[in-house]
């Protein structure tokens, strides 16, 4: 048993590999040699994990991965517990369907990070691609729990069809944030792209920078949303995000919508003037 299992990429990866199922909770029961024999998908075939990564340690739910994993997909997918720290960027679908534990990515994350996750924390220090915390295309539900924090920018359609949970983007978000949201929270500390909140049922989209509110939303009032104050205090305290000190009393314009759907959702736009 070791404190931390370390996986070090042996050589740069030229084509896409997939490591779904190689999660801290799974590695916690395996020795070093067993871990090295785990399958990594290379197209329709598998190769041993030990051929791709140098494995050190075993029987620990703390895993550290070194190297540029931007061509490796599904890092931390399905994890239910433990801590997975990636000291670089990751490919597509990082943290997909994760249900617990903490996945930290020191670099960027590709398309579909946190796709359909139900619990745990996905913390991305760099930027995230499209459909962060969303569902698979045409899936009825996206993210259903947990928390995603992106300290850089994020791509299009973040939080699309999400049902529960919170997606936080410290930078800017791309177009169609919260597309078809059922519920949950999308918090954008920077600007949000066009068409935020389309077909939103009961979700909250809070934008601290500029946001263009669709015409299917109706202005309600300007006020201090108390749940945003709690969210900001949580992000500042537990996620170490730098947010302006006046946030507990910050005013937001509340728009109810999408009236093309239930109309029980909201876009909260920081500031008293559009």
């Amino acid at each position: 048993m070791s404190d931390v299992i370390t996986l070090t990429l042996r050589a740069p990866v030229a084509r896409r590999l997939e490591v779904e199922g190689i999660a801290p909770n799974a590695l916690a029961t395996l020795d070093e040699s067993d871990i090295a024999r785990l399958p990594v998908w290379d197209g329709p075939h598998t190769v041993p994990l030990g051929d791709v990564f140098q494995v050190r340690g075993g029987r620990s739910d703390r895993v550290r991965v070194s190297g540029d994993l931007s061509m490796i997909d599904a890092v931390g997918a399905g994890m239910t517990a433990g801590e997975l720290q990636v000291e670089g960027s990751v490919g597509r679908y990082a943290g997909t369907r994760m249900a617990g534990g903490v996945l930290r990515v020191a670099g960027d994350a590709g398309y579909g990070a946190g796709l359909e996750m139900t619990g745990g924390l996905l913390d991305i220090a760099g930027n995230a691609g499209d459909r962060l915390g969303a569902g698979r295309l045409a899936a009825a539900r996206g993210m259903a729990g947990g928390e995603i924090v992106v300290r850089g920018n994020a791509g299009a359609e973040i939080g699309a069809t999400m049902r529960r949970g919170t997606v936080v983007v410290a930078g800017d978000a791309g177009p169609r944030a919260g597309l078809g949201m059922i519920a949950g929270n999308v918090i954008v500390l920077g600007r949000a792209g066009e068409d935020a909140g389309r077909f939103n049922k009961r979700g909250t989209i809070a934008v601290f920078g500029r946001v263009s509110v669709p015409s299917t939303y109706r202005f309600a009032c300007t006020y201090c949303p108390p749940h945003i104050a709690v969210t900001v205090a949580h992000l500042r305290t537990h996620r170490r995000l730098v947010i302006a000190d006046d946030e507990p009393t910050a005013r937001f314009r509340r728009y109810s919508g999408d009236m093309a759907e239930l109309g029980r959702g909201e876009i909260l736009a920081r500031g008293e003037e559009p």
Partner: peptide, 22 residues
């Protein structure tokens, strides 16, 4: 009313004449 789950805790948002009571 509506609810929000923040950091694993559920909070209720109750609309009042001044805004919301949490």
């Amino acid at each position: 009313q509506g609810s929000k789950v923040i950091n694993g805790e559920r909070y209720w948002r109750i609309p009042v004449m001044e805004g919301e009571f949490l």
